[in-house]
């Protein structure tokens, strides 16, 4: 539904988007990740038809954004960064305006506005000027505007930024509920978001794609993926560490004050083996945990250009 092919965009000397390609199919929620200023918003603005790319091609529903701008804007729901809206209007007049521009009138218009307001739970503030609303509500007004015409393709720039935990949860539930019938592209720099709503994640840094995969695949790229984490008194750890180092599947053992982290060789599962071993020797440990791998580590590694092993793992071991 969304296809981006070798997109480039520069602002003066700054390269905002550099040779970015990806696609989003129906039923997919693609999380666009990256540090601030990585080029996420720029790429989304190009998809939404607001910015013109220097080179490359963006297509929505099979139509080229540059060639059919109006048709694409009709099919696409877009929430710009910061969810801007006309502050002096109330949500109901604002949504009414959007509905009119999108060609709704009369009963249909009222139904579309009601539906969008209900989905985003705007009920109690519908008649308050937008400038008096809290950040969470403003964001919901922005989302309601994007959903109003029930578009097949949704592009949401940082939909949960500035929301409190409850609102974030609601926003994610809403996005997940809509996901099966739509192609959704969301950007975020909050990593927990990816596991919570996305079926796929693309990490972008300095305008380039540095990782692309399902949240699981990305986690697997973490040095701590399938690592075993043990909490125990220092003495126990001192005896345990050399034994673990002898195991075939173990690549590395890092010992901290009261904890230990054993990283497996690629493709090895060491969790069960270690658990059996600890039980056989009647060792006193307070916790044995299997690490899925932190997306944070992967994110930090790929966006700062550092190696995937090293610092990230050591920090975890000292926790």
């Amino acid at each position: 539904m969304i296809e981006i092919d070798r997109l480039c965009k520069r602002f003066g000397a700054i390269v905002a988007v550099d040779d970015v390609s990806f696609s989003v199919a129906r039923g997919e929620v693609l999380g666009f990740l990256g540090p601030n200023g990585a080029g996420k918003s720029t790429a989304m603005k190009i998809v939404a038809g607001f910015l013109t790319p220097d080179s490359g091609r963006a297509a929505v529903c099979g139509l080229d954004v540059a060639e059919h701008p109006i048709e694409i804007k009709r099919r696409l729901g877009y929430m710009p960064e910061g969810a801007p809206s006309y502050n002096e209007m109330t949500p109901v007049t604002f949504l009414g305006f959007i509905a009119s521009v999108r060609g709704f009138s009369g009963k249909e218009k009222r139904r579309a506005v009601d539906r969008a307001a209900e989905m985003t739970r705007l009920g109690e503030v519908l008649n308050q000027p937008i400038e008096t609303l809290s950040r969470g509500y403003k964001r919901r007004v922005g989302l309601a505007q994007a959903l109003l015409h029930d578009p097949e393709v949704l592009v949401l720039d940082e939909p949960t930024d500035g929301l409190d935990p409850n609102q974030k949860h609601e926003m994610r539930t809403l996005i997940r509920d809509m996901a099966p019938e739509k192609a959704i592209l969301i950007s975020t720099h909050i990593l927990e978001e990816v596991g919570a709503v996305c079926t796929r994640a693309v990490i972008i840094a300095r305008g380039r794609i540095v990782a692309d995969g399902t949240p699981g695949e990305l986690e697997a790229r973490s040095p701590n993926h399938n690592a075993v984490f043990i909490s125990a008194p220092a003495q126990t750890l001192r005896t345990l560490a050399p034994i673990l180092r002898e195991l075939d599947g173990v690549a590395e053992v890092a010992v901290g004050d009261n904890s230990l982290c054993a990283r497996p060789r690629e493709g090895c599962d060491i969790h069960d083996e270690i658990q059996v071993l600890v039980r056989q020797r009647n060792m006193l440990v307070s916790e044995i945990r299997l690490e899925r791998g932190q997306l944070d580590d992967v994110f930090r590694a790929v966006t700062t250009g550092g190696a995937l092993t090293g610092t990230a793992g050591a920090e975890t071991a000292e926790d």
Partner: peptide
């Protein structure tokens, strides 16, 4: 305010 982005991504030339 940034609403220009909203306005110009509505189906209007």
């Amino acid at each position: 305010i940034g609403t220009i982005e909203l306005l110009l991504t509505l189906p209007i030339s």
